[in-house]
């Protein structure tokens, strides 16, 4: 599920980076404000724990084995904001040290696994108040959402995949998600026995936004898959609704079609658009960071 560099088209990696980077900034600020400084070593060690737990093989039948992915488990243990940060740290470490996932594709991987995956997993856990079924569904939804998003992003990027391959992939994702659900439930149950009260059940005040965020994530992942499987669908819908002209005028910008329209040379145009995307991400992150800091100062 770790997408390396070179697979995603420029629109996809720029769009996912634009979404993921400010979200991680916001979640980092939120996690930082909620925890004492002693949580920092704990979060780091929990990240190392997930890495290490991925080494433990679980029998998955027919002589095959599987391992824990861990996004849902972290969400249940630390809450979704902190879990997203730990997963982001894991993904960044994997990309830098193990070349497991790309640097430009880090936004896509973070969005799929650390943001959408963690929050989609937290939804059933929060709704079912931390029951065993909730834990199982947390693992299932987390992996399924991340896998569907990864598949959609590859399809939208134009990576060749015959329909049979997509069907096999979806079936494989479903099996993997079932295993992840069983692993999350089994490991969390074992943890509760060893360390009672370690699961972080949702507080009443924080529940609404978690549910909304997770529901939006689930809807978005399925929507992406539908859109990517039939990319002409959105266009035909826009045509039928008479929106084509308005949409194209709305989308026309100096960087529309991921090309800098003010530069004649197509190569330089695409490169400038890519660089501009990175600058936009940087400015967005700085703006989010400063706005948050200003809000905190006013509140203090």
């Amino acid at each position: 599920m770790h997408i390396p560099d070179g697979y995603l088209s420029t629109p996809v990696w720029v769009a996912t980076d634009v979404v993921a980077a400010p979200t991680v900034f916001w979640l980092a600020r939120r996690a930082q404000s909620k925890f004492d400084h002693h949580r920092v070593p704990l979060m780091g060690v929990m990240g190392a724990f997930v890495f290490a737990a991925q080494m433990l093989n679980f029998p998955a039948g027919n002589g095959t084995s599987s391992h824990l992915v861990g996004g849902a488990l972290l969400g249940c243990l630390m809450g979704p904001a902190a879990a997203s940060i730990v997963m982001t740290a894991i993904l960044a470490t994997q990309a830098l040290l193990f070349q497991d996932g790309g640097l430009l594709a880090l936004g896509a991987n973070v969005f799929n696994m650390a943001i959408a995956g963690v929050f989609a997993g937290y939804l059933p856990f929060a709704l079912l108040k931390g029951s065993r079924t909730g834990l199982f569904l947390a693992g299932f939804c987390s992996l399924m959402t991340a896998a569907l998003l990864a598949l959609s992003e590859l399809l939208v990027s134009g990576v060749a995949m015959p329909p049979a391959m997509i069907t096999v992939s979806l079936a494989w994702f479903a099996v993997s998600a079932l295993i992840e659900g069983a692993l999350t439930m089994a490991v969390a149950t074992a943890l509760e026995r060893i360390q009672p009260g370690c699961l972080r059940r949702p507080q009443s005040g924080s529940r609404a936004w978690v549910v909304v965020a997770a529901a939006a994530t689930l809807l978005a992942s399925f929507g992406w898959l539908l859109a990517s499987a039939k990319p002409d669908g959105l266009q035909s819908l826009a045509l039928r609704a008479g929106l084509t002209g308005r949409v194209s005028s709305l989308l026309s910008s100096p960087l529309g079609e991921y090309q800098a329209s003010f530069i004649a040379n197509p190569a330089l145009s695409r490169t400038v658009a890519g660089m501009a995307g990175l600058v936009v991400i940087y400015v967005l992150c700085t703006a989010v960071s400063r706005a948050w800091a200003a809000t905190r100062r006013e509140g203090a």
């Binding site: 980092a28 600020r29 979060m43 990240g47 890495f51 290490a52 940060i85 992150c285």
Partner: peptide
């Protein structure tokens, strides 16, 4: 200007990995 909190988590993660 990457979030310092995230970088600290990465530092601890790497140290105990």
């Amino acid at each position: 200007h990457a979030p310092r909190f995230l970088l600290q988590v990465m530092q601890f993660l790497y140290r105990y990995l």
